[in-house]
């Protein structure tokens, strides 16, 4: 952090995404995007999450293509272990039959887990590399080059996931219960009387909306906080070594747990959506 003027600058720099937007002058980056409003792309978030997702799907796809029913290779054993773990959880929580839930849960679990695990990479490594590339490749000031590699510390990622899940909740509710059943569920619960319809509707709508909101905010909050603490620890000189170690060890537990919770709640919400009352 030697090259930063203040700790504040350092922290702000590490918590800022690399941005891209198009203006009248063409495609511009970072600070030029301050006034672009909604149409800004966090290219580090998108790039890293896509890279991670494609790597994981490519690995699993290759294993699936070469899958043998005999003695599996070590890679296949690992992949099967993960798949079976997800399948067990889906089977124990989701009692309907759906070809979508299990692959959805697998994608969420592995993708979120791998995105979370980038949190364990030393916080200065990728900003430093990106700074070097910016400096020597494009002649930029390294302080103007941003690289925030943990995609799940970006609220856009977690909300994209939970909105996807929310759309599926609505889809399955309508598919299984029909428009009538779904409307009835929203208006006739918890008090089954016509006079309470507005009251029920407010309560049930809040319940429905709270699900994706809590899902995404939980993941975002945990990851953002842990990333922030990592950055704070990185500002305190040599004392950071044991602290970094302790915080990393703690996150070996927290990061998979968050991925697991996200997957489990997705399964539970979808199973609730598929349940007939």
């Amino acid at each position: 952090m030697a090259s930063y003027e203040t700790t504040q600058d350092y922290i702000n720099h590490h918590l800022t995404n690399a941005r891209m937007c198009s203006t009248e002058e063409g495609i511009v980056f970072n600070k030029a995007c301050e006034d672009a409003g909604f149409w800004v792309w966090h290219i580090d978030t998108i790039g890293w999450s896509a890279f991670i997702g494609i790597s994981f799907l490519f690995l699993f796809w290759r294993v699936g293509k070469k899958a043998t029913t005999g003695v599996p290779s070590k890679t296949q054993a690992l992949v099967e272990m993960i798949v079976e773990f997800v399948d067990d959880n889906v089977k124990s929580s989701f009692h309907g039959s759906s070809k979508l839930i299990a692959p959805l849960a697998l994608t969420i679990f592995v993708w979120v887990l791998l995105m979370n695990l980038t949190d364990l990479i030393p916080v200065d490594l990728f900003p430093w590399i990106a700074g070097l590339i910016g400096q020597y490749g494009f002649g930029m000031d390294p302080k103007d080059v941003y690289m925030k590699i943990v995609p799940t510390t970006d609220i856009n990622t977690t909300f994209a996931l939970s909105i996807g899940v929310f759309i599926l909740i609505i889809f399955y509710s309508l598919k299984i219960k029909g428009i009538k059943g779904f409307t009835k569920e929203l208006t006739m619960q918890p008090l089954n009387h016509w006079a309470f319809i507005p009251f029920n509707f407010v309560i049930e709508t809040v319940t429905l909306l709270a699900r994706p909101l809590s899902l995404s905010l939980r993941l975002f909050g945990n990851l953002y906080a842990s990333e922030l603490i990592f950055i704070l620890i990185a500002t305190i000189g040599y004392l950071q070594l044991p602290l970094h170690f302790a915080w990393s060890v703690f996150h070996i537990l927290v990061l998979p747990l968050q991925a697991f919770i996200f997957m489990m709640l997705t399964i539970v919400y979808l199973s609730l959506a598929c349940e007939e009352h």
Partner: peptide, 20 residues
């Protein structure tokens, strides 16, 4: 800090789930 990244991630998520 909501922005167009949300759309990008939503598309990526959909594609990944469909591929999976």
């Amino acid at each position: 800090n909501f922005n167009a990244t949300l759309i990008g991630q939503l598309i990526a998520f959909t594609v990944f789930v469909a591929f999976c």
